[in-house]
């Protein structure tokens, strides 16, 4: 998507774009889910189960989770580079964050496809 005109280091623009696109995806998903909840008062387990059984919902949720993970990675990376001036500490925190995000991803997959 990003052409090489912007030079080697255009990660800033890429990150910025990802933040915005992922935010839009998360918002659409949240609004959709919220609307569903409003339209279904007294929601029971069966209905909820049925909702997540559909392929579409599974894919949408996966997209939402991916967006969330990317969004938090970029967001937290920014926060770390702003406030944590010790390289070692930042490295540890980033590795920890990355591992957590990966774990979250597989946990989400496991839950989604367990439905």
């Amino acid at each position: 998507m990003v052409k090489s005109v912007l030079g080697v280091n255009h990660q800033g623009l890429t990150d910025w774009l990802i933040q915005r696109v992922s935010a839009v995806i998360m918002m659409l998903y949240s609004v959709g889910l919220f609307a569903y909840l409003i339209m279904h008062p007294g929601l029971d387990y069966a209905e909820w189960h049925a909702l997540f059984s559909s392929k579409c919902m599974k894919l949408a949720t996966l997209l939402f989770i991916l967006s969330l993970l990317f969004h938090s990675w970029i967001g937290m990376w920014t926060v770390f580079t702003d406030y944590i001036k010790s390289f070692l500490l930042r490295l540890v925190l980033q590795v920890f964050l990355l591992l957590s995000l990966i774990v979250f991803f597989f946990a989400a997959l496991w839950i989604l496809w367990g439905v």
Binding site: L6, Q11, G12, D15, T78, T81, D82
Partner: peptide, 16 residues
């Protein structure tokens, strides 16, 4: 213009 934009496209110079 293009070079100027490219110089700012990293995560820090502009996007902070």
């Amino acid at each position: 213009k293009s070079e100027r934009l490219a110089d700012l496209a990293d995560p820090f110079s502009l996007f902070r």
